[in-house]
Nucleic acid binder design. Structure first.
Length: 782
DNA sequence: ACAAGCACTTAGTCC
DNA sequence: AAGTGCTTGT
């Protein structure tokens, strides 16, 4: 394994220019120096399949980058012949930047990016082979939901009983598993809306084609279909990609796995130049369909694959590593890596603090941050990592009062704001006249007097003539069918769009959007509002236009926003970072705060309810990810009281606290003075057998999950049975389960008497609350 | 066509 | 506590 190290190539001089002329690269530094033997081996083993199991902070990214640099410097491949897939755009961007410090000239790695963006790129080239045009729109979750709602309405499916979100979730799961409509198992497809699930999927796909659109899942799925149905296209990419690298392989789902395998098939499995890097202990996307099994079976898929483990941690102190290792050891079925460090000094103990409520938590952390700041620590070296984004607000509010500079990563998203989405809808419709979802969104924004009935007429015409809404409108305004007022309005709107489309050829995207906002009356609408909010909206739109300046084409910009939903990445100011544990993966900070370690919040109750033990283990890995982000200091806290859905709930510290090693953790309890739950034995309390939550698997959530699983095993598709029962309860209509004059009880309004029945809606004269119209499902017999 | 008011829901993590 | 979507009133 000690292969000879290539000689250091000096920079500058005639050699470099000669290399450059040949399209070759030279090293800026001795890039192999400083790598440990395992890392070096992982860099040099360029040919044949390679699995790198890299624990947190073991220099995984460095290995990937050095490996790419090595391939380029050895002239084994050109930049465009290297496919490097990451899971986040952040990771891709970071790698591009870091490669700059190794190699010159800066190679243009056009095939480095997320699975989704690489797939989109391939799909645009061959769109017509999967019934799309190369200008297809990428739908986000919001568009997806609206589309599903339309389908549900068309099928007369009650959206109350069968929420669109639920179907979106199922669609997502199918697509993550690489299933086309025809592949969906019968049990799955019969689950939703009394067996309409499968057909809805089919209809949904048909609608996407009509809209010339693809959702996130399609980007991969349609790419897979493209490869399968067009061997010649696939062969083209086999020839193209000489080396493939995959980061965070433990997070790949089945569709991504299939996608990769198709691309790797250009050579016999044992000769495929594919390198995957991952850490089973950091698998935190199971809910998104990630299959840890992918990493476990790599050696089977690629026989003779070399496996290299990276276990030497360069990031954290011994105490932090000990805390993380002890916690993760509670999981079963690991590949079993053990992180170690050479540094003798253990460093600061990991701290655990209990506070009274989330407000005090924000206050305490704010004070600590200010203290570190006074000691000369830059704010950039500190981060607060939360389980769920609703926890962020409290910190933001506190930091605003303190005047503490902070930055939120992946919080309330810029591109999901209403005004931004409106502006984007205008742009989408200009770029893509078949984008009916965009048309519907803006046809009456700002208000033009185009109401539901007019829109309905447009939609009927569009459906009848099988053309997009914009085209249907274009025709309708030439007839007598519309009322004069609407006809004039729509005719003007069409003319505007034609004009914008024309101008989009010559104007830069940011100029176009400014014109559109001005001419559509959107800016005037905000002016007229005069509210504090509308001021902020105008600011956001300016920000949008600014962020568009770097784009030369409208299509390029729209692609960017669909796939790259992160914002102000270029903010250079010194600020504390607030983000979720999920988006923190791959990052590191000197000081890391981990608030909200309360049972139910973290580990999340829903995760445990839905996925039982597997869910709990994924939460534990999330904890492991959180702790291992810290270089010098990790400060965990838990609130005794937290407000959830506007109600105060008391909470006990996370069970994970009990799984931390007592000798690496220091416990300070700020909350006990207020009474309430008093935390007993510090990190050592896991030895206290009297603790009712001592066993992880006896908590209410776990019991519930287990009960669910039992019933599932019980036989037959649980879902059909469950549904049939539910339906027989209220076949609704006139045969409501209630009679006029009957005494009933409502959770919120108390007792009352039924005075009118319309289907599942009952009018009830409540004793205290007066007469209300209430859904049947919210009352019970009194 | 649109605004206001009300009942009911919602807050899990991301490309 | 804040947001959605439905119903009612203008």
């Amino acid at each position: 394994m000690t292969e000879p190290v290539p000689a250091y190539r000096p920079m500058g001089g005639p050699i470099t220019s000669q290399l450059q002329r040949q399209g070759k690269y030279s090293a800026k530094v001795d890039y192999l120096a400083g790598l440990n033997p395992e890392q070096r081996e992982a860099v040099l083993a360029t040919d044949g399949p390679l699995l790198v199991l890299a624990g947190a902070g073991t220099g995984k990214t460095r290995v990937l980058i050095t490996r790419i640099a090595h391939i380029l410097l050895e002239s084994r491949a050109q930049p465009w012949e290297i496919l490097a897939v990451t899971f986040t755009n952040k990771a891709a961007r970071e790698m591009k930047v870091r490669i700059d410090s190794f190699v010159k000239p800066l190679p243009e790695l056009q095939w480095m990016g997320t699975f989704h963006s690489m797939s989109a790129k391939i799909l645009r080239k061959h769109a017509e082979l999967v019934d799309l045009k190369s200008t297809f729109t990428i739908l986000d979750t919001d568009d997806q939901i609206r589309l599903i709602k339309q389908l549900l309405a068309a099928e007369n499916i009650d959206e109350k009983r069968w929420p669109a979100r639920q179907f979106a979730g199922m669609l997502d799961a199918w697509k993550n598993r690489g299933l086309q409509p025809k592949d969906v198992p019968a049990a799955d497809s019969s689950y939703y809306a009394n067996g309409k699930g499968g057909r809805l999927y089919h209809d949904y796909q048909a609608r996407l084609k009509a809209l010339n659109a693809a959702d996130f899942g399609d980007l991969l799925l349609e790419c897979i279909r493209l490869f399968r149905e067009n061997p010649d296209v696939l062969a083209e990419y086999h020839r193209k990609f000489k080396y493939m690298l995959v980061d965070e392989y433990q997070d790949s789902n089945t569709a991504q796995y299939l996608w990769l395998r198709l691309l790797a098939q250009g050579k016999p499995a044992a000769e495929a130049n594919i390198c995957v890097v991952g850490d089973d202990d950091q698998s935190i996307y199971g809910w998104r369909g990630a299959e840890v099994d992918n990493i476990l079976r790599f050696e089977t898929d690629f026989p003779g694959a070399k496996v290299i483990k990276l276990e030497r941690n360069y990031r954290s102190t011994a105490n932090i590593l000990k805390a993380a290792s002890t916690l993760i050891a509670f999981n079963e079925g690991r590949l079993g890596k053990t992180l170690f460090t050479d540094v003798a000094d253990g460093g600061d103990l990991v701290s655990f603090t209990q506070v009274y409520d989330s407000e005090e938590e924000a206050r305490t952390i704010g004070e600590e941050i200010e203290q570190f700041q006074r000691q000369g620590e830059p704010l950039n070296s500190m981060a607060i990592l939360v389980r769920a984004s609703f926890q962020m607000r409290e910190f933001e509010e506190r930091f605003i009062t303190l005047g503490l500079n902070y930055r939120v990563v992946g919080g309330p998203r810029f591109y999901e704001r209403k005004e931004i989405r409106d502006a984007l809808a205008y742009l989408r419709l200009v770029a893509q006249p078949a984008d009916d979802l965009a048309f519907e969104r803006i046809v009456n924004v700002p208000k033009r007097g185009i109401g539901d009935s007019t829109v309905k007429m447009l939609m009927e015409t569009a459906r009848g003539m099988k053309v997009p809404l914009l085209a249907a409108t274009r025709m309708l305004v030439e007839t007598e069918e519309l009322k004069p007022k609407q006809r004039t309005t729509l005719r003007a709107l069409i003319a505007q769009f034609d004009d914008w489309a024309w101008r989009s050829e010559s104007l830069k995207p940011y100029q176009l959007v400014e014109n559109i906002l001005e001419e559509s009356g959107y800016t005037d609408m905000l002016e007229a509002e005069k509210s504090v909010e509308s001021q902020g909206r105008k600011e956001n739109l300016k920000e949008l236009s600014r962020s568009m300046e770097e784009f030369d084409t409208l299509g390029g910009f729209l692609e960017h926003i669909a796939l790259v939903m992160d914002r102000d990445s270029a903010d250079a100011s010194d600020a504390v970072t607030i983000m979720t544990l999920h988006s923190a993966k791959g990052l590191e900070y000197d000081t890391v705060f981990l608030p909200g370690w309360e049972d139910g919040t973290f580990p999340s109750q829903r995760s445990m309810d839905e996925s039982g033990r597997a869910g709990l283990e994924e939460e534990r890995r999330l904890g492991y990810v959180g702790i291992t982000r810290g270089r010098k200091r990790v400060r965990i806290s838990a609130a005794q009281n937290r407000r959830i859905h506007g109600l105060w709930q008391s909470a006990i510290p996370s069970r994970f606290i009990d799984e931390l090693p007592p000798d690496a953790v220091e416990v300070t309890d700020k909350g006990s003075a207020y009474g309430g739950y008093s935390y007993g034995g510090g990190a050592a309390s896991r030895f206290n057998k009297a603790d009712p939550f001592e066993s992880v698997y006896e908590t209410p959530g776990w019991k519930r999950a287990r009960a669910n699983q039992e019933s599932r095993k019980g036989g037959g598709p649980l879902t059909i049975e469950g549904e049939l029962v539910a339906r027989s309860v209220d076949l609704g209509g006139e045969s409501s389960g209630y009679k006029l004059g009957e005494r009933v009880f409502h959770l919120k309004f108390g007792y009352g008497e039924v005075i009118q029945i319309e289907g599942n809606k009952l009018t009830i004269d409540f004793e205290k609350a007066g007469t209300k119209k209430v859904l049947e499902s919210f009352i019970r017999k009194g």
